[in-house]
């Protein structure tokens, strides 16, 4: 039964509530490939039941971090402990207690959906009978019952992603690693996935998610770090990061390409901070409409103006001085 919480109660229910040992603890964690430093001394602590996000552009070091946590990439330097175990010696045990959804689907293309789940369970040493029961339950959970006996090759991108998620749950993982779970999916498929991940979180699974989508981080993560160039540049809850680093609302105004910067002197004193982009100005203020009224009062007429809630993308822009998706 789904309600019995088949995900992840092992680590949570057996231990006293007081004892919240981190599921993942990294200290000065470093990953180098030859001369290239992918991860440059990060500190992270993730507690049971938490949904934790690594946010950052391509090449920020998110996937390298995930691979070290997944015990498929040796740590170059620093300390990493998962379930209070050492990945370099206890990798097998650690991997047995977690589920991984890699950035690119690594489904077994020679097999059907059901067979993918069955054989994957066998890699975890689960009995054939348990695998069968579990596979049926998970296929139901990701709403792919009618595709049960189709080869995975014939599925759409969103369906494959859901198979990947179902497969990662075959061993009742205490910890779920999701590397860019919705990259490349259409909005509808993303929402179905978000919904499933939210259900898993409700049942207590610890989730680690990398993404370069702001809305995804806001939807899924309790806490996140922003990574850039292998380092952590900010840490907090999605809302906390927004209030700490920027204002609640953003007024976006466009004066035409290349003419935005000239407007800066006239805008002096409007909003709390102004970010200049080639195609537009971002005016941060707690009250975007008030800032827009001020523009009107000064008789400044942009080609277009838009007030919106500020997002993590704006935080990223402020922290790194560039847009997130390049």
């Amino acid at each position: 039964m789904l309600e019995s919480g088949y995900v992840a109660c092992r680590g949570l229910c057996d231990t006293p509530v007081m004892d919240v040992r981190p599921v993942i603890m990294a200290r000065s964690l470093v990953k180098r490939f030859g001369d290239f430093t992918a991860v440059n001394g990060i500190d992270v602590e993730i507690v049971p039941g938490e949904a934790f996000g690594f946010l950052g552009p391509n090449g920020a070091g998110k996937t390298s971090t995930m691979r070290m946590i997944g015990c498929v990439s040796p740590v170059t330097d620093g300390d990493l402990r998962i379930f209070d175990l050492d990945p370099s010696t206890d990798g097998r045990e650690i991997r047995g207690r977690m589920g991984v959804v890699p950035q690119l689907d690594q489904l077994d293309t020679e097999l059907t959906v059901a067979e993918n789940l069955l054989i994957y369970g066998r890699y975890f040493d689960i009995s054939r009978r348990d695998c069968r029961a579990k596979a049926d339950e998970l296929i139901e959970f990701v709403q792919l019952a009618e595709k049960r006996d189709s080869k995975v090759d014939s599925l759409s991108g969103g369906q494959k992603r859901r198979v990947s998620i179902a497969r990662s749950l075959i061993n009742d993982p205490e910890l779920l690693l999701l590397d860019e779970p919705t990259t490349g999916l259409d909005p509808q498929a993303r929402h179905v996935l978000w919904d499933r991940l939210y259900q898993l979180k409700e049942r207590g699974a610890t989730q680690v998610i990398t993404t370069h989508f702001m809305d995804e981080a806001e939807q899924l993560c309790d806490r996140l770090v922003v990574m850039d160039g292998g380092e952590i540049v900010a840490e907090g809850s999605p809302q906390g990061l927004i209030t700490e680093h920027i204002r609640r609302e953003v007024l976006e105004v466009r004066f035409g390409y290349g003419r935005n910067e000239q407007q800066l002197p006239a805008l002096d004193g409007v909003g709390s901070r102004i970010e200049v982009l080639p195609d537009r100005l971002l005016i941060y203020d707690d009250d975007g409409d008030a800032a827009l009224s001020e523009l009107h009062r000064r008789e400044i007429v942009p080609e277009s103006a838009l007030v919106r809630r500020s997002s993590l993308e704006d935080v990223f822009l402020k922290l790194t001085g560039r847009t997130l998706i390049e």
Partner: peptide
Amino acid sequence: HSKLYEAVLATPMS
């Protein structure tokens, strides 16, 4: 191509 082994190595298999 199929990345089969990568998926397998993410499990307790060595």
